[in-house]
């Protein structure tokens, strides 16, 4: 069990790392999947916009001042 936990933590850290991106991407592609039928090819634009937003927010998160400063 301990070994499995360690392996799980390693895989999580390696593939996911920051849970913000992971959760944001799941939500984003959930929306994309729901809109695929009504929007057709325009859904690609939604996918791009959501991913670009995640990247932008992530870059902004890195640049924001630390709470104690």
């Amino acid at each position: 069990m301990n070994v499995l936990t360690k392996i799980g933590r390693y895989l999580w850290k390696f593939f996911v790392g920051d849970s913000f991106q992971f959760v944001a991407l799941i939500v984003a592609f959930g929306i994309v999947a729901l809109l695929a039928h009504p929007l057709g090819a325009w859904d690609g634009l939604v996918a791009f916009a959501l991913v670009a937003t995640i990247v932008s927010v992530d870059a902004w998160r890195m640049a924001r001042p630390a709470p104690h400063t």
Binding site: F29, G40, A41, D43
Partner: peptide
């Protein structure tokens, strides 16, 4: 690729 997998018909 993820878009294709969830059903996006890319231009």
């Amino acid at each position: 690729w993820l878009g294709e997998a969830v059903g996006v018909p890319w231009w």
